[in-house]
Design a protein around this nucleic acid. Structure first.
Lengths: 359, 359
DNA sequence: AGGTACGGTGGGAGCGCTCCCACGAGTGAT
DNA sequence: ATCACTCGTGGGAGCGCTCCCACCGTACCT
């Protein structure tokens, strides 16, 4: 993943450091100058068709592969970007979110010569190391996933002038370029779906509300009820924190309401799994007594009993789009001071309701 | 992870490409020559104590960080190694094995300036890309985990002369440098443990036997029985393939034996979990009716009901040792042709039985 | 005919480092 | 005092690229 070659294929040469061909050698073979070969290899349009063909032939014959270090040195780039995960390592491997993002980023980078450095910063020591690393300008750009609102990393990046793209916003007016799923629309659609199924007393279990995305899902829930002409009963809004345990607790709380809700929109599949356990223990049927809709459409949703209707986020696509956006940012020439920068890219990706038998 | 700086700390300078200090500037500031600064930065002993101090002061004041591309170009290195995982991406994230290896490798690399490239090759297209990448000599060495016996990757690496270390052998006479857990001893210990608990009719569920480690565990099982003076009943040896489903199937098969086994050594925790489900469905008690021992000591073992006795492999340490071994290999000067190479490093790490209530 | 423009090209300069050779000062043997 | 080393040091050469400027030829103007 995240590795690719620009040059052509060719006979593999053995031995460590065994004279790999250089630009100069390719140029000699093709009977052209060094600059021309460079132009061909880098896809410049200012090369005649015949010259290009000759150079490409020479590249193929010699099995030329550009020397990345030389290129980086001369062009003052690094051809590497970092994917920063400000989470303890354990979570990185557990949450399917990250593997999907990684797959998308990898896919986007497969068509480039960029290297991807995976950087998991789980503690302050690793944070300090990352800061120093970034200060050393060893990557051309940074992708940040799962950023908390109070994280100092964005300020560091801005101060260093390193292009960055984050997944998920921290607030409505996120200053950094971002890629996010349309959480509001997703939640609204979930509610509309429950309404269409005849539910009228729809509760919600929210995520940690200091996460902007959780707030959006709550807003979408409210908007969905409003659109259906249903009142918002605040006693049916119960906070969770994205953990399974909080889903259990929230559902237990909801079961004290009278009358009981006939549906619940849960802001994550993991919390929905916790809530589901409580319902099973109490003998409450899903979806007959209470319908459920989750969020994330993770593997857990498919494996629940009954399978959980859930709002799918296009996570892999988010990864791909993040990477492409970052590449664009990096390619953009540095503007002279004084000229206002064009607006930051902001990309909201649509969600999709995946209906299963829990609703 | 896998990022580190050699140079000192210092004031962070803002702006993309904003004049980072160079060796030359540090030299001027310290009042010495370029070569001397290079020597200090690279820890050469041939520098006087006073000069060293002066240079280090200048490095700190300017916040000097070596330019990795320039260094790589001049020294004909890349300062990067690849961790190659010949597995579908999904498994990489699911198996705790990989995250532990990664953590160990990361830890070993934290004290160096090496970059780690994670390369998951799940299909032939990615294989081809990796081959081309390696042919381009873009890494100084390669770490391979989870290699299957028929994988052509090792030949490629040998042909290219790229140093490599693999985790787990492919056979008893693995030609590549390797780091492996002592699977035979671990299995033997598991059996001895069951014998000590009074069990006499001990079955085993094996892993996929084309994986050398699985074969070793089976050999250890046989050796353990032999040491206890117990006969090997081949009807109690049932093959699995490391999946949960195969564990279920194997246990169902074992339950047709008469008399039933009173214990089972399962070659992986995941298979043990499958086997456990079958026992629960049949109302067979663990450990009263059948004692169980697993292998890997993964999270799943701790979370089983009852918690599973398991053979722990020092996976994180294996990762660390692999990385250190590779670093040594890379540092070893290329020997002139004709002189026999020193023997390849072979490191067998001990396993440890973690007793819980399933036995 | 001369002038102008421009696409296409060659090659110098230089990126920041490592490697290595040369050189001076100090040390001890002759 | 001379020679032979050693140790510490300075700096030239060069790694393989990209960038850019100068140059050439052709096409199109006046």
């Amino acid at each position: 993943m995240a590795i690719r070659e620009t040059g052509g294929r060719g006979p593999i040469r053995g031995g460590r450091g065994a004279g790999r061909p250089t630009l100069e050698e390719v140029a000699a073979r093709a009977g052209v100058g060094r600059g021309t070969v460079s132009r061909v290899v880098n896809g410049s349009p200012r090369v005649s068709e015949s010259t290009r063909a000759a150079v490409e032939a020479a590249v193929a014959e010699l099995g030329y592969v550009p020397n990345r270090a030389a290129r980086a040195l001369a062009a003052n780039r690094t051809d590497a970007i970092a994917l920063v995960v400000p989470e303890v390592e354990h979570r990185f491997f557990v949450e399917p979110y990250f593997s999907d993002i990684l797959r998308g980023v990898g896919a986007a980078l497969d068509d480039t010569d960029m290297q991807l450095l995976l950087t998991i910063v789980g503690n302050d020591r690793e944070r300090g190391r990352l800061a120093h690393y970034l200060a050393g300008h060893r990557v051309d750009g940074v992708l940040v996933v799962s950023l908390r609102a109070d994280d100092p990393l964005p300020d560091l990046l801005t101060g260093l002038g390193i292009p960055a793209v984050i997944s998920g916003r921290r607030s409505a007016d996120e200053p950094l370029p971002w890629v996010d799923a349309d959480n509001v629309a997703g939640a609204r659609e979930a509610v509309a779906h429950l309404v269409a199924r005849g539910r009228r007393r729809i509760a919600t279990i929210t995520g940690a509300l200091d996460v902007y995305g959780a707030q959006c899902r709550l807003d979408g829930y409210r908007a969905g009820l409003a659109e259906a002409g249903l009142p918002v009963d605040e006693s049916l809004v119960v906070p969770g924190d994205f953990t399974e345990a909080s889903g259990r607790a929230a559902m237990e709380s909801l079961l004290t309401r009278d009358p009981l809700p006939d549906a619940v929109f849960v802001a994550s599949d993991v919390m929905a799994a916790g809530a589901r356990q409580v319902l099973r223990e109490r003998g409450i049927r899903v979806p007959e007594d209470i319908a459920m809709v989750g969020f994330d459409d993770s593997a857990i949703a498919r494996h629940m009993e009954p399978p959980l209707t859930s709002v799918r986020q296009p996570i892999e696509e988010m990864g791909r789009v993040m990477a492409q956006t970052l590449l664009t940012e990096i390619a953009r020439p540095t503007l002279p001071v004084g000229i206002p920068r064009p607006p930051q890219p902001r990309l909201m990706l649509p969600t999709e309701l995946v209906a299963r038998s829990s609703s």
